[in-house]
Design a protein around this nucleic acid. Structure first.
Lengths: 209, 209
DNA sequence: TTGGAAAATTAACATTGTTAAGTATTTTTA
DNA sequence: TAAAAATACTTAACAATGTTAATTTTCCAA
């Protein structure tokens, strides 16, 4: 059955071409410039061909959102070797912010756009696995910090929401221009790191005298 | 000149009709269902008439965003009488979250959508006055808390960004369905309040023994 | 070689924001 | 009061969008 196998491969290749074209479009021209026709132009197929590989535009965005989580996971490889959970939290926050600021369009589709969640809700197995596993890593680290007495005991879910909320808030306010008048762009990332720093040093029991 | 005056009034009235129609649309049918033609239908004018009162759709959203800040300011009336800056911070956070969860579409246009900021950047006097004055209230309260030794001294801007970031992150992750699998909807607001609670009790020096 | 499946395309639809041109209405002026 | 000018509004149209139905092209197996 070498033939159907090759066909499968070809199908995957075109799928990849479509996604690559979408990425090129939204990185170079922004989210709203990802249109089926422009994608078709780039891959040199007719617009309707796109629909042979993806159910609709939302499904393309869902796939981009998955790719984004892959990229974020790669960046988080540097977390494994960090023993101290607070230091790890620190690095997690920095990674998250740096990722969001470096890849605003991926960030958008992962955490702001509604499209990927819509696709999920229409799927039979509709868990947001990527988001959940990322949040899980956060929860585990928080729990470990509590275990070791590095931070005060509290509702882990509420604490995780607070920390995730903060870094997400920083990135999304920044990428949606709500910090523009607050500070110069070149200083923005440093300030955001300072914010994370402030939070973690506030909860770090070992820093109290 | 009673005549031009009356005309001015009429013009304002139609402007208000357009904005009211937009609000009705995005509250009842969501953001993406605010279209010029639907607005025109509601006010019983032709679609192009809308353009006699607003330059384009973005300008409508800019006005809605202003209205949103008015609504938020109303809710914040209850802050004036709170003497303790930490208690005030507390109430500010709760107000912000409750406002965002109760008016997700207004919240969207105030803090997530790009359209209003775009209009601003094209204006000659392009300060985001509403956002700035809201942030200022936050900064002043933080400064006061530091003055009185209630929280540790730190870079006020970084702290303000952290706190605003957190509440914004909570609301925007919630309204964009990123918390859906984390908890039941009915418990969500309580959890978010718990997050704020956790942060403020973490930085409150008076709670340390 | 031919029949049928698979892959791709053409044509079309409804909807969107927006502009240009024209009409109706009201106000000003002679 | 009648003509002129300004104002208010509408009709028609354009280009772009996502998406579907119908049709053509390509490819492999019998």
């Amino acid at each position: 059955m070498g033939i159907t196998e090759r066909k499968e491969k070809q199908k995957l290749e075109i799928k990849k071409m479509i996604l690559d074209a979408s990425i090129k479009l939204f990185v170079e021209e922004g989210f709203e410039n990802v249109t089926i026709r422009k994608i078709a132009d780039l891959i040199e197929y007719s617009p309707t061909t796109v629909y042979l590989y993806f159910k609709d535009k939302n499904e393309i965005f869902y796939n981009l959102h998955e790719l984004g989580f892959q990229k974020l996971a790669e960046r988080n490889q540097n977390l494994a070797e960090i023993a101290n959970p607070i230091t790890r939290l620190h690095k997690m926050g920095e990674n998250y912010i740096d990722f969001g600021m470096a890849n605003p369009e991926f960030y958008d589709v992962m955490f702001i756009q509604r499209a990927p969640m819509q696709v999920l809700s229409e799927m039979t197995e509709c868990d947001w696995t990527h988001g959940e596993s990322a949040l899980n890593a956060l929860k585990i680290t928080i729990e470990e910090a509590m275990e070791k007495g590095l931070i005060k005991r509290a509702n882990v879910v509420a604490v995780a929401m607070a920390i995730w909320g903060m870094v997400h808030g920083l990135v999304s306010l920044a990428t949606r221009d709500r910090f523009d008048k607050l500070t110069e762009i070149k200083d923005l990332k440093a300030l955001m790191h300072q914010s994370v720093n402030w939070l973690l040093s506030s909860i770090d029991l070992s820093l109290r005298k």
